[in-house]
């Protein structure tokens, strides 16, 4: 195994880890933003927005992630290609494959994040909003200073599993040809003829991430619990 790692595969894997972590981190951030935004929309007085959010979460919690990824990957590329063809003098620019990857993961995880934030939000007593108003906070200040910190404390464990899922979702990148951890392992397995070393390394990377993830969120939870209740 050491032979493989020193003969260039080690570097490949490091790059793959970088790729997967970057995509996972970006998708995680975006899905949180989607979650907050959709929760705000669904609590809006405007009745249509709430049902729109419900439709969004229902559809994307039912649709296979891989289907959405392939759909976005091929259609976005085509759409941008045809757009570029209409513009005069532009050369052939291929869309970075990371964009559809991050988009589809964020959309799918955003649906889960929305459910999470909605549930956490619903637990917050009405008095907290009123106290914020009575003290003269603007809506944004109330949101950032009073509401979100409390929602965060309620949903920390779920945020942990969400971050683990966003890491696991990066495995799908291999299907559209991005050299993530799984694809690097597959290529290595095929070209060297020792699949168990390469798949073993990939599995180890994910397991280590899972352990780190659970440690970090357990720590965050204990820190938050030290204060409120």
């Amino acid at each position: 195994m050491l032979d493989y790692l020193t003969s260039g595969w080690g570097l490949q894997f490091l790059r793959a880890i970088g790729t997967s972590l970057t995509v996972a981190a970006l998708s995680f951030v975006f899905c949180i933003l989607i979650g907050i935004l959709c929760t705000l929309l669904s609590r809006n007085d405007f009745r249509g927005s709430a049902s729109l959010v419900n439709l969004y979460t229902y559809v994307f919690r039912s649709l296979p992630d891989i289907l959405l990824l392939i759909l976005i990957f091929y259609s976005l590329d085509g759409a941008i290609q045809s757009l570029l063809n209409r513009l005069p003098g532009s050369s052939d620019i291929r869309l970075n494959a990371y964009v559809p990857a991050i988009m589809s993961t964020s959309i799918v995880l955003g649906a889960y994040a929305t459910e999470l934030f909605k549930a956490g939000w619903a637990d917050i007593p009405k008095g907290q909003f009123e106290a914020g108003q009575a003290l003269g906070f603007t809506r944004v200040q109330s949101l950032v200073l009073v509401i979100l910190p409390q929602v965060y404390r309620k949903i920390i464990p779920h945020l942990g599993s969400l971050s683990l899922i966003s890491m696991k979702e990066t495995a799908l990148l291999s299907v559209i040809g991005i050299p993530d951890i799984v694809r690097t392992a597959s290529i290595g397995a095929r070209s060297t003829g020792s699949p168990f070393v390469f798949y073993g390394i990939a599995i180890a990377i994910f397991v280590i991430f899972a352990i780190l993830c659970s440690r970090v969120f357990a720590y965050l939870e204990s820190r938050a619990r030290a204060g409120a209740q």
Binding site: Q128, F137, V146, G227, Q229
Partner: peptide
């Protein structure tokens, strides 16, 4: 308020300073 409505995620001191500092 009847239900106090203190901010549970902040210390007593931070409860008292939050609005002063931001508003």
């Amino acid at each position: 308020f009847q239900q106090f409505n203190l901010f549970p995620h902040l210390t007593v001191l931070d409860n008292c300073t939050l609005a002063q500092r931001w508003v």
